[in-house]
Structure formats: structure tokens, C-alpha cells
Write a protein that binds this DNA or RNA. Structure first.
Lengths: 336, 336
DNA sequence: ATTAGTAAATAAAACCTTTTAGCGCAATTT
DNA sequence: AAATTGCGCTAAAAGGTTTTATTTACTAAT
């Protein structure tokens, strides 16, 4: 059983004070006019014995943990997983660490996680807020902890935010379907008040209006099981004899594909919001609306870091364009 | 800007000592013979003002953080993602929290992450060790921090371990291919000394021997790009005119599928080690060797918790059986 | 009347840092 | 000669808990 070595052990071993060691270790040797000879002696010794400060004590004293909390909807969804990974590596270079947890859209869990991170004194938050999390976010703000939301936001709460242009994404996707001469174009969404869902709905509706087409909308319960989702999607697609569908999330699209396999119906032309490994692989490959993941991640941490340094005051909202990646699932209707 | 309320604030407000409050808050009221009246008064007040102890200070004093570090290879791989999720919820019930990070098989990153978790004083570790992490793990053990490995282990290091029966999984899969009358069965693996890969190789080889068949083995560099992997897989499958392939990981299988699409060759019968959303969805759906994810997660945390409570001394190694999930990609050859 | 024991609470030490305020001395300025 | 400045370093406080050792005020026993 090895004992952790302390800063006081070092001071004692070198016959100097703890303060001096601390100054040197925190790059304040110059500022505090500590002789270069001593500085070197300390640094060498520290290296030799492999001393690492107790971060807990450090954080307790400074009030800073250099840890950021990332709270996302579902870590196993590649959209979120990729964002998480990008954020993690970006932030790493700045000396911050990330700890992340998924909420699976469970408000209570989200609240607990935020509480836990708060208790552990994370320096800031990046959150994909579930419905009902508004008050919690507000509390964080009141406690003066930087929070930046992404993917969705609260219209009534002034917060930093980074997200994709969901309206434009859905609008472009729907317009593309119209151009390809599809006539019965459905939209699958969730029973949710989240902004990104509303914006996607609006994009779809606007494009349908522009093209003077009848709209078909099906919503799925957020907590629906896979089987339930599959069944309602089957009904939606078959009963309305849709010839094209826009799915508002990648996992809804996957449920749709599973349904077509399970219930043995032909999936019409389709587009999914958010890319996924599967989509490139399927036959036919699936056209998607792809969010600018890299830019989202970069902006998220830029804003958060600026906040942490107290360099910005006004809240920032960034909306980044989506890209329509046309693949085989939306071939022009004539060729079908 | 709200100020955090401290235990001393409570003591002051109620005109009692900090010690008393602390005892009550830590369920030691009985033991320390504090009157029920006072206990109730304190508890009520604490609830009223919503006091939450500073976990940092608490951990500094007790040396326990009630946080476990989970270090996995790749959080975006559903196999690991699912294990992570299961572990997270299991451990939650026991009052522990999990923080996790992925290493993407980068030893240096793994070392840094472990160092960070160690600095933050996590109480224990669950690790999928990358090659070269043996010394680090040994150091943790010497520092008396519980570590349990999973998915793979170090043959020369006595550690707790939970994993699947990779030999049996690969053996069963290969045997199944033989039974289906395939004659040129290849095996795709990684250039890696990790135990799980070796065991899978051995399972494949053993089954091939039993069936007196020639073996075909292709290894891919661990850090190969997707394109590189695809190219070498194409060559492997086509040049050897394989009629069946066993992929030793799900992502290798996916690279193979992508390759068949990109280079436009027909994927022969195939089996993947570890399931994935894609595999059920594809046409034909892919037969897989499925690890008992739930049991693995349960055993991992059981062992870790027992260690944390000091209830076990000898190291435990658990090997759990895999299940072959037969789907369409391995139909008997005659029917092809 | 003293001792012993007990219930109820507390003061102070401990955990390990960072940071503020300041010390003693020599050299320089007034 | 006195006052100021600069140098190189340090003692002690602060951060917010838990825990050990102790105190106080009783009651019961000798």
C-alpha cells in the first residue's frame, strides 16, 4: 500500500516552505521572485518522486475543478456520441476535462445528474435539456455557473445556445422530396415540446405549403417502446399510402426501417434527420439531413470557455446550417 | 449570485455546534446519542433551506468520493455503450456514480484518463485495458485502488476480470459455418495482443482443425483508417474466394459490409462478433456472436462493490458464455 | 460525600491545497 | 541618517467537511 506523497513532504525534504513549493508548482516562480536555482531544484525533485497534487484539495481551495459537465440525451446515439467525442478532445487542449452522462430524456435523472455535477463543483455545463428542465437551468444560471444549451433551448429563458438550423434542414429535405415528384409525403415526429422538433415540423409544413401539398404528420410517444413505435409507423405509412417520409430523428427512421422489415411492407422514399452508420450501409442507402457536428462542438466550447473567462456578457445564440446528403433512398419517383 | 449555504451556517442558525449537525446529517444521531428532538429540528431546517454538503470537502476529509471510473474503448460502439449504460444504472442504486471516458485504444490517452480519475480520487475502476496499460493497472493495484478489467485482461497480472467466453463464441460461430457446408471460411482479426482477440482466433482455428479445413486469416491494423480496412478486407475476401467470413468485432464487420458496397462485390456468408443495430436491419440480416451484456455488467459491479467493501481478497475471474444468434447471413450453402 | 457512569453536545484536529500578508535583510534613494 | 525599495522566502489563514477527544451536567451507586 503506497502512501500518496504530499506537498508538505516535498517542502520538508528540501528544507523549504510549502508556500514556495506551491508557487513554483503553479508557475508563479517568476512572479513571486523565487530564484531560478531553487525553482529548478524543486521541479527536479517533484519530477523524481512523481508528485501529483491532490486535485480535491486544490479544487476545494480554488473553487475551480477544471471539469465541465456534459449532459446529453443518449450517448449511444451517434449524433450525440460524436458531438461528445469532439467536445471532449477540443476541451482537453484547453486543460479542461469532461464528464458526461446521458439522461435518456428522463427529467428526473437529468436533474439528479446536474445536481451531482453541481455538488462536485464542475466549472460549467453543456446540456441538451429535456422537457421540464427549465427551472433547473435557471437555478444554475442564478448560481452563476456557465451553461450552454445545445440541440434545443427554452424560448422563455435567456441562455447561450448552439444548434442546427432545424427549420431549414427540414424545409430543404421536404422540398427535395417534392422536387423528386413525391405526392404523399409524411412527417414523423415526437410528442414533445422541444424546440428542435417544433422547428423541424415547421420546416416540413412550410415546404408542403409552398408546394401546395397535403401534409401527413404522425407523432410517436417519447417513451414508446420500439415495438409500439414500429406499429404506429407501419400504420402511418401504409394506411396513408405514403410515397415518401421524413423522419425527424435518426432513431425514428431506424424504427421505421425495422417496421418495414417486420411487417413486410415496402419502405417508401425516405429521409432521416441526423446521420447514422446504418444509413450509408443499407440498400438503398438513406438520404439524410446532416447537422454540422464539428461546428456545433467547436462553438459550444468556444462559448463556454469565453464565459468561464468572463469575456462575454450577452447571451449568444448560434444557429448553424444543415446539409442535405442525398443518397439512394430518394431517387426521383419516375425511376422507381 | 447565490451563495452556497454551509454546515456552519446551519449550526449558527440553530445555535448548536457544527459537529452535531454533521453527526445528524451522517445518520449517526442514534449512535452519538443525540436527542430525537434536536435531530428532527436539524433535519427539518436542513430540508427547509435545501442545504447540500460540499462534496469536495467531504471527499477530502473521508478520502472517499463514491465515484467509480469507467474506462472503455469506444463509447460510440453499442457493445460498450450498452455495457456502460447498464453499469451506470446498477451502480446508481448503490449510491455510487460513474464517470466514463473512451480511450479509442490510445494507450497514452488511457493513461492520462486514469491519472485524471486517480487525481480526482475515484473509489474504484472498471477498465477495458488497451495494449500497454499493464504497468498503469499494476500501479493502481499497488495504490490499493480496486480495479476490475473487462473484455480483456493481462495474462501476467493477477486482477479481477469479467469477460465473455471468446474461444467458445468463435468456435461455435465457425462450427456453424462449417455445418452450413461453407468451405473457404476466413477470419478477420486485429494486429493486437489483446486476450479477447487471441481467444477468438484460437476458437476459429480449433473449429477449423476439427473440420479439417484450411484456414484463412487476415489482420487489420488497429489504427487503420476505414478506407484502409475496407481495401484490405476486399482483397482478403475476393482474392481468396472466401464463401464465409467470421469478423472478430462488429466494426470490422461493418467495414467489410461497406467494402462490399464500395467495391461492389458480393459479401459471402458472414458472422460478426458483437451485435449492432445495423445487423438486424440489413438485407440479409447478419448472424452474430452475442456477448451476455447484462450478466457482464452485473458481475463487473458486483465484484467491484465487494472489493470496495473489502469483502473479497482473492482475485475473481469470470468467463460468461456467448450466444450465437443465427440470422439470414449464414443460410446453408445449398440454398444460396 | 465521593465516585462512577451516562447522556448530550462540542472544540479542535485533520484532510491537502492555495493565497494573503508580511518578515528580515541589503541596497538604494531622499 | 532615515526612509524606501527590492529580494527571496514563509507563517498562517482559508476552503468545508468529518471525526477524535473532551466537556458539561446529570443521575446512580458506593
Amino acid at each position: 500500500m503506497k502512501k500518496r506523497i504530499l506537498i508538505s513532504d516535498i517542502a520538508k525534504a528540501l528544507g523549504i516552505s510549502v508556500t514556495t513549493v506551491s508557487f513554483i508548482l503553479n508557475d508563479k516562480a517568476k512572479e513571486k521572485r523565487i530564484s531560478e536555482a531553487l525553482t529548478k531544484r524543486v521541479l527536479d525533485y517533484v519530477k523524481k518522486v512523481g508528485y501529483k497534487p491532490n486535485e480535491l484539495a486544490k479544487s476545494l481551495r480554488t473553487g475551480k475543478t477544471k471539469i465541465l459537465g456534459l449532459i446529453i440525451e443518449d450517448i449511444s446515439n451517434p449524433f450525440f456520441g460524436n458531438i461528445a467525442r469532439l467536445i471532449e478532445s477540443k476541451v482537453y487542449e484547453q486543460g479542461y476535462r469532461i464528464i458526461y452522462c446521458s439522461t435518456n430524456n428522463d427529467v428526473e435523472k437529468a436533474k439528479e445528474l446536474i445536481q451531482m455535477f453541481y455538488d462536485r463543483q464542475v466549472d460549467g455545463f453543456i446540456i441538451t435539456p429535456s422537457d421540464g428542465l427549465e427551472d433547473t437551468v435557471k437555478q444554475l444560471q442564478q448560481s452563476n455557473i456557465p451553461v450552454v444549451l445545445f440541440d434545443r433551448y427554452f424560448p422563455d429563458l435567456e441562455t447561450d445556445y448552439v444548434g442546427a438550423d432545424n427549420f431549414q434542414g427540414a424545409f430543404d429535405a421536404t422540398s427535395h422530396l417534392c422536387q423528386q415528384a413525391y405526392k404523399r409525403i409524411g412527417f414523423v415526429s415526437l410528442y414533445s415540446d422541444q424546440t428542435q422538433m417544433k422547428e423541424r415540423s415547421e420546416g416540413y409544413l412550410k415546404a408542403m405549403d409552398n408546394n401546395k401539398q397535403q401534409s401527413f404528420i404522425q407523432k410517436v410517444q417519447m417513451d414508446a417502446s420500439d415495438d409500439e413505435a414500429m406499429e404506429s409507423l407501419k400504420d402511418f405509412i401504409c394506411e396513408n399510402r405514403l410515397d415518401a417520409v421524413l423522419f425527424s430523428t435518426n432513431y425514428l427512421a431506424i424504427s421505421g426501417l425495422k417496421a418495414s422489415k417486420k411487417y413486410n411492407f415496402v419502405m417508401p422514399a425516405m429521409i432521416a434527420f441526423d446521420d447514422h452508420t446504418v444509413f450509408k450501409l443499407l440498400e438503398p442507402s438513406i438520404t439524410v439531413v446532416s447537422q454540422p457536428i464539428k461546428e456545433i462542438a467547436e462553438n459550444l466550447i468556444n462559448i463556454l470557455l469565453l464565459r468561464l473567462q468572463g469575456k462575454i456578457k450577452a447571451t449568444r445564440k448560434m444557429v448553424l446550417p444543415c446539409e442535405l446528403k442525398i443518397r439512394e433512398s430518394t431517387k426521383a419517383k419516375v425511376t422507381l
